[in-house]
């Protein structure tokens, strides 16, 4: 039970940032990240969107606010790793869509259990067009979880390409899973598996 709660807290942490975080020592990417997550928090805290019956509306609004800061193409590319090169432009486009859906389904639902977790900015490092923003998520029971956002500046815009929670990289996690599947079977089978998974989840929801 406890572990499930921590997991939910982690996932909220991926998307949310507390409104009261100090903006003073944040540079451009850090500031952008916080502003976006503040917007997400406004949606989560909005009393008119609370309650089980408003779930879909809340999730949609939250997704609209936070998704622009994620570079899903870069995430998909990095998650597929060495297998990305062999894909045709059409396959790439399809994979980005599938991967975006995986992210959406895996994390947006977890924010339903948000109950005032705090997130503190620890530091920010910038190296050319790469930036790392270190944060800490503090749960209601004072358990601290480190969450690190890796951001990339692609022409004029800072966007997240990886999230590292307690030292575990989201992209690397998917990269090793996809690689394991692609070593044994073809790319078509991977796409099939992802689609089947989505199908199963949707029937489970109904």
């Amino acid at each position: 039970m406890k572990s499930r709660r921590i997991l939910s807290a982690l996932c909220i942490g991926v998307f949310c940032f507390l409104g009261t975080t100090t903006l003073s020592h944040a540079g451009e990417p850090g500031k952008l990240l916080m502003e976006t997550i503040d917007k997400g928090l406004v949606v989560l805290k909005d009393p008119s969107l609370k309650g089980d019956e408003k779930i879909q509306e809340r999730r949609q609004k939250l997704w609209k606010e936070i998704s622009p800061i994620f570079n899903f193409e870069e995430m998909s590319k990095r998650a597929l790793g060495q297998h990305w090169k062999n894909r045709t432009p059409d396959e790439r486009k399809e994979f980005v869509e599938l991967f975006t859906n995986i992210m959406k389904d895996a994390y947006i639902g977890k924010t339903d259990t948000y109950s005032g977790e705090k997130i503190v900015l620890i530091g920010e490092k910038q190296d050319n067009h790469y930036a790392t923003i270190q944060t800490k998520l503090i749960t209601n029971k004072n358990t601290e979880v480190s969450v690190e956002y890796n951001m990339l500046n692609n022409p004029g815009e800072w966007k997240i390409y990886d999230v590292i929670i307690e030292g575990v990289s989201l992209v690397n996690n998917y990269r090793s899973q996809f690689n394991n599947i692609l070593i044994k079977s073809s790319y078509k089978e991977l796409v099939q598996k992802i689609k089947e998974k989505k199908g199963k989840e949707e029937t489970a929801k109904k």
């Binding site: 060495q82 090169k85 190296d127 307690e166 030292g167 690689n179």
Partner: peptide
């Protein structure tokens, strides 16, 4: 874990994506 980018790392360059060891005791 190798990536899919066309840009290769030159001698002396840095890898930007890293994972620290997992602290089992802390977990």
């Amino acid at each position: 874990t190798p990536g899919g980018s066309d840009t290769l790392i030159k001698p002396g360059d840095s890898l930007h994506q890293t994972e620290p060891p997992i602290d089992i005791e802390k977990l």
